[in-house]
């Protein structure tokens, strides 16, 4: 044999073309599933409703009940949700446009939320 015969290389070329198109198709498929996936998981993972409920309960709490409510929430949250909940209510000085400052702390191991709200 004097030289290599390359008559048959178009078959392997077609193999490559098919492989590449398959590869790009896979990328597209992967991307499209990720859209819905991340939205739903993001929504479920971030405890929006939990935090809102904690926040509303804290703001509804009066000075006199603070200790009891804090103990209730801290122990129930730890028991049921493995979350750390704590808060502090302080009376704002005279002359400010709000009466009270609420410092709220929430941490469930994945999401930590800290807020200083004034009302």
């Amino acid at each position: 044999m004097a030289r290599l015969n390359d008559d048959a290389q178009w078959i392997v070329l077609m193999g490559f073309i098919v492989s590449f198109s398959l590869f790009f198709l896979a990328i597209v498929v992967n991307q499209s599933t990720v859209v819905g996936q991340t939205t739903a998981e993001g929504v479920l993972e971030f405890p929006k409703n939990d935090i809102r409920s904690v926040r509303e309960e804290v703001i509804a709490c009066s000075d006199a009940d603070m200790d009891k409510v804090l103990k209730d929430m801290a122990s129930i949250a730890m028991d049921r949700k493995n979350a750390v909940v704590s808060f502090r209510i302080t009376q704002a000085p005279q002359g400010l446009p709000f009466n009270k400052t609420f410092e709220i702390h929430y941490n469930n191991g994945v999401t930590a939320y800290n807020e200083t709200a004034t009302y």
Binding site: A8, I11, V12, L13, G15, V18
Partner: peptide
């Protein structure tokens, strides 16, 4: 070449 393309 056919075998090679198929394998790829």
């Amino acid at each position: 070449e056919g075998i090679a393309a198929g394998l790829i």
